Amino acid sequence: MKKALLALLVLVVLAAAAAGGWYLRRERLVSEFATAPVTLPAQGVTLTVPTGTGPKTLARMLADAGIVTDPELLYLYIRREQAGPRLKAGEYLFEGTLTPAQVVEQLASGKVKLYRFTVPEGLRVEEILPILASSELKLDLKELERLAADRAFPRTAGVPTPSLEGFLYPDTYAFTRNATAEQVLTKMVQRSLEEYRKADAQRKSGVKLSLLETFTLASIVEKETGQPQERPRISCVFHNRLRQGIKLQTDPTVIYAMKLLRGVYSKNITRRDLETPHPYNTYTTAGLPPGPIASPGAAALQAALHPLECDDLFFVSRNDGTHIFCPTLECHEAAVRKWQVEFFRNKRRQQRTGGAH
């Protein structure tokens, strides 16, 4: 009897040793697997993990996509690290050289694939919406246009007017694949209001512009110059004219007014355009127009609320992106003669003579 018990004990010890050896070998294999790098294709691998996907199914999906080499070892690694409850659904982009441990960490962090687009400063709503529609998000242009035309939507997004014009902030954005047109437009409005609050915190004493007036003036400043250093001075000119009751007489508002009247955008302004009455035509209507004419960037918003100190009432383009500033009509007329009349007369003369002097 004693011999039988001893033999059974020996068998148990041997079985335990074998099990222990097997466990150690398995742990070594899992550890080596988890830290072995896998080099992915140059374009990366995109994988969508549906909601409710279990660790075993996920391990098989990752192996089938070539992101890991062994689904069983990955599953064992996920169990060992108790990572299953932390893994998140979504669309993921795996790039470069990754270890299985790094793959699991990316899935646990929820670092999903993002789709980016960039909107430059100074664009109108009708120019911005096609950028969103042609981006990798593939937003529906008709839906974007429907929301932009819905007079209730801008107010729900936080705009103090029934139009999105001027409030789709120019920036680079990143969204997940499932972002909706409403979410994207709302985010762009929120960014514009964020930048307004930053500019408002630096508002110059005595500047009484409302939020809508700020965006309106900033949009005009944005369209008048692409030179960052000029924006505060151009803003000063407009503030001086507003304070003295002088019409702003700024060409971008005329162009915008004619677009509203005719449905066609054109940068060419005629004398008839200048004389055509319209709320947005600052040659015929005093004060600021009813709303923005484009989307201003941060620098233009800051300039609108913190203009430079100056006596200028006029500015004239040098035709190179910069301007001559003048405090008097005499100075302005001289600048017009030099930089508009004579400049273009000489240019036409040079074109006729093939550039000879």
Rank of each mutant, 00 (worst) to 15 (best):
residue 109 S to R: 07
residue 224 E to R: 01
residue 113 K to D: 04
residue 10 V to S: 13
residue 311 D to P: 14
residue 181 A to E: 12
residue 202 Q to H: 12
residue 52 G to N: 09
residue 276 T to L: 11
residue 227 Q to R: 14
residue 316 V to S: 09
residue 280 Y to W: 04
residue 81 E to L: 11
residue 257 A to M: 06
residue 18 A to E: 15
residue 287 G to T: 05
residue 294 A to W: 06
residue 75 Y to V: 12
residue 164 L to W: 00
residue 275 E to R: 08
residue 68 V to W: 00
residue 27 E to T: 09
residue 5 L to N: 13
residue 178 N to I: 10
residue 170 P to I: 06
residue 94 F to Y: 08
residue 316 V to D: 06
residue 278 H to L: 01
residue 218 A to N: 06
residue 65 A to D: 02
residue 226 G to C: 04
residue 133 A to L: 08
residue 165 E to C: 02
residue 227 Q to V: 15
residue 235 S to N: 10
residue 277 P to V: 12
residue 229 Q to K: 14
residue 219 S to H: 08
residue 28 R to L: 14
residue 96 G to A: 03
residue 120 P to T: 07
residue 108 A to D: 04
residue 39 T to L: 11
residue 177 R to S: 13
residue 101 A to D: 07
residue 230 E to K: 13
residue 167 F to R: 05
residue 18 A to V: 02
residue 248 L to C: 11
residue 231 R to P: 03
residue 253 T to S: 06
residue 350 Q to H: 07
residue 34 A to V: 10
residue 297 G to Q: 11
residue 240 N to V: 02
residue 325 F to W: 01
residue 72 E to G: 06
residue 351 Q to S: 10
residue 213 E to L: 00
residue 72 E to I: 02
residue 130 P to A: 06
residue 207 V to R: 14
residue 135 S to E: 03
residue 109 S to F: 03
residue 18 A to K: 15
residue 112 V to M: 08
residue 78 I to D: 12
residue 211 L to R: 00
residue 131 I to R: 13
residue 33 F to E: 10
residue 259 K to W: 15
residue 248 L to N: 12
residue 105 E to A: 12
residue 297 G to D: 07
residue 221 V to W: 09
residue 334 A to S: 11
residue 52 G to E: 02
residue 327 P to Y: 08
residue 243 R to P: 03
residue 334 A to F: 02
residue 188 M to K: 00
residue 202 Q to R: 14
residue 189 V to E: 06
residue 113 K to E: 11
residue 335 A to L: 04
